[in-house]
């Protein structure tokens, strides 16, 4: 079950403020990294929402993300629609596909579920790759960004777009946290704990799973819309299945089922990847080995480790203070 602890609030705010300060003082390249962090963090939050709290380990969120980006591009470029409408389209498309996958796979468990999500994600890739109207192999370009001049924000500016992206992380986190804290979210976690019991209690399990997957998908759609606006270009590269795996790595690295861990994981992953690729072009191998070590070590992730460390320290301090009150 999800609890918004003080530590979570603190870590989240520290990351967001840190990223904004980094953006203000950073170079052009630094800002690119910040936007990359934001996109990955939002996607990782959406994956953690279903995988960490519902046990639905998804290997299709990369595809849902790509679908969101393509929906944005389709409305924006093909239909000449305004970016605001394109964002809505991205969220709706991502929600619909997520809901459908959640509904179809609701009876499958464990590895069957993982494989099924992988396959359905690949379906999106194949459809996009084969579709001439969506640009096929070449993708689509000439996308425009949201016009927020009404509130004095110019997203064409690199700095302002980066800060906007960072604020999107915060927004996504709040939405995910509110969903998980609601009665709906509690029931969803309950299904993860004991599906048969929830069914016996009269819960329509498939509806909860499908809706949760759809809601999580719509958050992935937000990440997709952000990515489309960032590069102002979409291509089938966005939808490749290994990206879903990379997002899962980020979630595990940060801490599965902590919601704030994935944000931390995204920061670490993007900057680490950047540093490693400065040294060697074979960063895949390093990330792969790192992942294997993390999982073999028992995989609580960075945030989980931090939480455990603080809890242990508090436990050590507690008997001491208890002795004082007795005396």
């Amino acid at each position: 079950m999800f609890h918004q602890t003080k530590l979570k609030t603190f870590v989240l705010l520290a990351i967001l403020v840190g990223l904004i300060i980094y953006t203000m003082n950073g170079s052009y390249f630094g800002r690119e990294l910040v936007v990359e962090v934001a996109i990955l963090a939002i996607l990782a939050i959406s994956v953690d929402m279903v995988s960490g709290y519902g046990g639905m380990v998804s290997l299709c969120h990369g595809a849902i993300f790509g679908l969101g980006a393509y929906a944005y591009a389709a409305v924006n470029v093909l239909m000449g629609g305004p970016p605001a409408l394109a964002v809505v389209a991205a969220i709706v498309a991502a929600f619909t596909f997520g809901f459908a996958v959640g509904a179809v796979t609701s009876r499958t468990r464990g590895i069957f579920f993982i494989m099924a999500t992988l396959a359905f994600g690949q379906m999106i890739y194949v459809m996009i790759f084969d579709s001439k109207s969506l640009g096929g192999d070449d993708g689509m370009w000439g996308l425009t960004r949201l016009d927020l001049s009404a509130i004095g924000v110019n997203l064409e500016s690199g700095v302002q777009f980066a800060i906007f992206s960072v604020l999107c992380i915060g927004l996504t986190y709040v939405v995910a946290a509110l969903i998980l804290r609601s009665a709906f979210g509690r029931t969803f976690s309950g299904i993860h704990e004991n599906e048969d019991r929830m069914r016996a209690l009269g819960t329509p399990v498939w509806k909860f799973k499908a809706l949760a997957f759809g809601l999580s998908g719509s958050l992935a759609g937000i990440a997709g819309a952000l990515a489309a606006q960032h590069t102002m270009f979409v291509s089938p590269e966005l939808v490749i299945w290994t990206f879903s795996g990379e997002v899962l790595i980020v979630v595990i690295l940060g801490g599965l089922g902590t919601l704030v861990g994935p944000v931390l994981g995204a920061v670490v992953m993007v900057f680490l990847k950047h540093e490693i690729s400065n040294i060697t072009t074979y960063w895949h191998m390093i990330i792969g080995i790192l992942l294997i070590i993390t999982v073999m070590a028992g995989g609580r992730g960075i945030y989980g480790g931090l939480e455990q460390y603080l809890a242990r320290r508090a436990a050590k301090a507690a008997p001491a203070s208890g002795a004082k009150t007795d005396a």
């Binding site: 895949h284 294997i292 995989g299």
Partner: peptide, 14 residues
């Protein structure tokens, strides 16, 4: 299953 998927996914990268 999740840890197995992750480990073998790491192997793919390697």
């Amino acid at each position: 299953p999740m840890n197995q998927v992750l480990i073998t996914f790491g192997l793919i990268f390697v």
